[in-house]
Design a protein around this nucleic acid. Structure first.
Length: 288
DNA sequence: CTGCAGGGGTAAA
DNA sequence: TTTACCCCTGCA
């Protein structure tokens, strides 16, 4: 590990920024001209560049690698082993893993993830990113300038709860404005509730999340997988459904049938399997 | 440039 | 089980 001021260079195996940031799990990371990515997470601005075997973290605050980023990037987990296990299942997984090698499942902030995936319903990635950015610029905290641009953190639930529907609508959220507002009021009015959901087992956490308006089976699974370390979930969206039907089920199947198959076939690794499959399918338009 | 489908689901009928 | 939903983006 080598450090400069605001810069930290670390050798990390299985770390490919493109696959981590463009596999559809996060919405606040953007590619720079030099191939690095700049993003905001947990109220911090960071730039990540892959330089051969080395990962260069820029704009990093002393101590934050251990305090924040090690967990955020899931660095304690052995992805080589996961990739090996999944690859030997069949040729599809072998291809999916080969394509997305270096992907990692992030540990994002539950509140931000909850809102982001409420927005994701019936929506494309480009627009989701725009809405999340608008919410942050209008109502989030200033985090200082980086590369000549002011950066903003995602607004707290208490801040959003004091807005009205129109304030959220102007960010481009469309009919989801009501859902976001209700979620903000539920979360800020029940202090500790969202944190307590993280502590429940997957089944119970899921039923809690689904009580929120705008959160159904798919959105709840994404929140569980991308912000609550519930790796035994298998979010079934249109891409995963098409891919699973195409490669495994060979017929039109309901999300429940697909989940059941995934449970039996991928077991404990189904969360990771989902992410490799989703990324592989979407980037290559498989099944469409 | 204008027009028009279609989108990483969900709630309500 | 089916249908409407905001509105931005992509592509005729």
């Amino acid at each position: 590990m080598k450090s400069d001021k605001n810069k930290l260079e670390v050798t990390i195996p299985d770390f490919e920024p493109r696959h981590i940031f463009e596999c559809g799990q996060c919405f606040r990371w953007n590619r720079e001209d030099d191939g690095s990515y700049t993003g905001v997470a947990h109220g911090k601005v960071l730039n990540v560049l892959k330089d051969g075997e080395k990962i260069v973290f820029d704009n990093i605050v002393e101590g934050d690698f251990e305090a924040v980023w090690e967990n955020y990037f899931d660095l304690k987990r052995d992805y080589s082993e996961i990739e090996k296990q999944l690859s030997k299942l069949d040729e599809t997984m072998e291809n999916a893993v080969a394509f997305g090698r270096g992907m990692r499942i992030l540990n994002q902030d539950p509140w931000e993830t909850l809102v982001s995936f409420i927005i994701s319903a019936n929506n494309g990635v480009a627009r989701i990113k725009g809405i999340v950015e608008n919410l942050s610029e209008r109502y989030g905290p200033e985090l200082g300038e980086y590369k000549g641009k002011m950066r903003y953190g995602f607004p707290e639930a208490s801040v959003i709860s004091s807005l009205d529907e129109e304030d959220i609508r102007v960010c481009g959220a469309g009919y989801r404005d009501k859902y976001i507002l209700k979620a903000a009021r539920a979360v800020s009015g029940n202090s500790g509730w969202l944190e307590s959901v993280c502590g429940l087992d997957t089944e119970d956490a899921r039923s809690e999340l689904i009580r929120l308006n705008g959160v159904g089976p798919k959105v709840s699974d994404c929140i569980l997988l991308f912000s609550m370390k519930k790796m035994d979930t298998f979010p079934v969206d249109v891409w995963v459904r098409r891919t699973m039907e195409y490669f495994y089920l060979h017929k039109k199947s309901s999300p429940e049938e697909i989940s059941a198959f995934a449970e039996a076939y991928f077991g404990d690794l189904k969360g990771f399997a989902q992410q490799y499959l989703f990324h592989y399918a979407r980037q290559n338009s498989i099944g469409k």
